[in-house]
Design a protein around this nucleic acid. Structure first.
Lengths: 221, 221
DNA sequence: GGTGAACCGTACCGTACGGTACACCTGGGT
DNA sequence: ACCCAGGTGTACCGTACGGTACGGTTCACC
């Protein structure tokens, strides 16, 4: 205990940029790549080691078991997901031009969520949801549910201000989100993540989603 | 050739109820069960054999390779998927009470597609879409795309008859479908297929989806 | 120049699993 | 009475892969 607090003994689990943390990052990045490509069972630890430019020993030193490595990686990716749209949300709650702001939010949604990096993780989590049930739920809560909750509260405020009429804000939030992203997301789920959409296409879907949404939820008058 | 047409030599690849076909069915049913539970890689041929009450020999006699068995099974499940709603569609195209008929269609959609048997196959296909790309596309074409195409043609007719106003019928079909089923389907994708929804809940989602859809696509006047 | 932490490379172990070989059984057709 | 296609059961092979052991190397710090 008395000799534990030397300068480099502090490297705990959370990030940093010490040599250890760097190695850990390299491993996690490589592992994510391999897991995304081959799935949990298909991914070979030897391959992860090779891709990371690290030795298998080091991986097992850091993560103990393959399962553990997998969970760490997915949880690591989870942090930012729901956070991205927080800014757009704040703007939405305070706006006076609901249509324009909603359109901006929709476009940001559809562009961000159709990024391969996002879709491939989604695919992976769905694929392994029965092997890692808690991970599936964690993803759903940190992703879709968080976004829906935030949107819902926005809609509630806009309804109070007389700009929308959402009797069930959470349902409205679901309608909005899925209207915006269902088309590209579902296509990619089945047809592989190497499909790319034209920006105009994405924008058009976003705009039409907003049109439908507002037709149903705009305040009368 | 001359001795090929005895009574039991006719049992080809397609179904029948000869002893051979029965064995084949038993294997396919058991295999589906195991694949759904454990995924492609996780499923063990020994286990499939045990579940089918058949010998591994017989399986390999019938299907040659594990990959083959897997593909056969999924393709087998594909046939009926898009076909189910054909009746509802026909009714929809001819109806005069769009709202009522649409509501009926929506309810049938949401109840049918939230059946575990449907959702688990969907999960499986998504999970293995990178290992079996052609299978993913086949599923998408036989399932969602076929339904969208049929719906789209209905909407087109209803638009011609002045009952709807769908400038882009295919887009409208997408909006309709995803409005109806996105909520339960996405929840199950992440949170496991043992989640069950209350019928009233499903009906409510269907009705609200129709409400939103009609707000955007009902013909004016 | 000594010490120890982090890491590398390789070899290795145990086991699991896809696929095959082989010997045997069974029941309908002739 | 015999045949034989379809099926069973078991044993087996080869290989792949998770995980470990071990010896060697680098590098920071004292």
């Amino acid at each position: 205990m008395s000799r534990a607090d030397t300068s480099h003994a502090v490297t705990g689990v959370q990030g940093g940029d010490g040599a250890v943390a760097q190695t850990r990052r390299r491993i996690m990045d490589a592992a994510l790549e391999v897991f995304l490509r081959d799935g949990y069972v298909g991914a070979k630890t030897d391959e992860i080691a090779a891709a990371a430019g690290a030795s298998k020993q080091t991986i097992y030193k850091h993560f103990g078991r393959k399962e553990n490595l997998f969970e760490q990686i997915v949880l690591d990716r989870l942090g930012g997901v729901g956070q991205i749209f927080q800014d757009a949300m704040r703007e939405l709650a305070d706006t006076s031009d609901v249509e324009a702001t909603l359109r901006a939010v929709a476009r940001e949604f559809v562009h961000t969520l159709t990024q391969p990096s996002s879709l491939r993780v989604r695919r992976l989590v769905i694929a392994e949801a029965s092997r890692f049930p808690s991970l599936g739920r964690a993803y759903f809560e940190a992703g879709p549910e968080r976004v829906h909750a935030a949107l819902s509260s926005c809609f509630e405020q806009l309804t109070d201000r007389g700009l929308l009429r959402t009797a069930e804000p959470l349902l409205a939030a679901n309608h909005f989100t899925w209207l915006v992203i269902s088309i590209p997301v579902n296509k990619v789920m089945f047809c592989g993540d190497d499909i790319h959409f034209r920006p105009e296409e994405l924008d058009h879907w976003a705009d039409e989603a907003v049109r439908v949404f507002l037709a149903a939820y705009r305040a009368p008058g």
